[in-house]
Write a protein that binds this DNA or RNA. Structure first.
Lengths: 111, 111
DNA sequence: CGTGTAAGGAATTCTGACACG
DNA sequence: CGTGTAAGGAATTCTGACACG
């Protein structure tokens, strides 16, 4: 715990796998990024990398759009959800998230 | 918990990302598979997919080889580690691992 | 607005083999 | 034994644009 939770935030999944995982088209996945709903990282060669958290978020986004909510509204919802947390707690979580994503994997050998 | 743990076992990481994560060459990663030390899945197109667990295992394997242990010895070590668990418990864990890897992601919306 | 698609190119990955040792 | 590498091909991904609406 604490190290395992980092698997969720590491950006290691390419768009083809995300497509399989979510059932969305590459077009949809890239469009939600264009609308600032999702923020993949990039490989040196320019390919997008997503986290498991991103995958879950994509599914939620797609569901809302299906319900007729526009991307602009979804973006505002997400910003509201951010501000709900008290500022210091939020800052702490963001920093911890970054640290987990970068240094989170620490486990002993299988034997 | 219980659902988050599945991130560790889902095979979603392509070899290029594994290379970045482990520092190993593609040649090494594929060779350890040839020697039955690691078992990636494949995309429909034939590309390898690894889990975070695989990534950790690869690092351990590389460390042992650096210490002069041969792949055949490492394989035997791994099989021994398997048998250490009582048979029923082992079977339960394997099945649970499969289930987690396939159906593990279940979380509520961000809001 | 949200998504499909054809277009051309670039990055990624695959396999089998030769090399060294 | 374990790993590097050049070879040729196939699968994957990228961007910008046109289309529908």
């Amino acid at each position: 715990m604490g190290s395992d939770s980092s698997y969720k935030y590491k950006k290691v999944i390419t768009i083809g796998i995300v497509k399989e995982l979510t059932g969305l088209s590459e077009r949809q996945i890239r469009y939600y990024e264009e609308r600032k709903l999702i923020f993949p990282e990039r490989t040196p060669g320019g390919n997008r990398k997503y986290s498991f958290e991103d995958v879950e978020l994509l599914v939620e986004i797609a569901n809302k759009i299906e319900d007729g909510v526009q991307t602009h509204e979804i973006r505002k919802e997400m910003l509201r959800a951010q501000k709900k947390q008290n500022p210091d707690e939020m800052k702490r979580k963001m920093i911890q998230g970054q640290l987990n994503a970068h240094f989170g994997i620490r486990k002993g050998p299988y034997s």
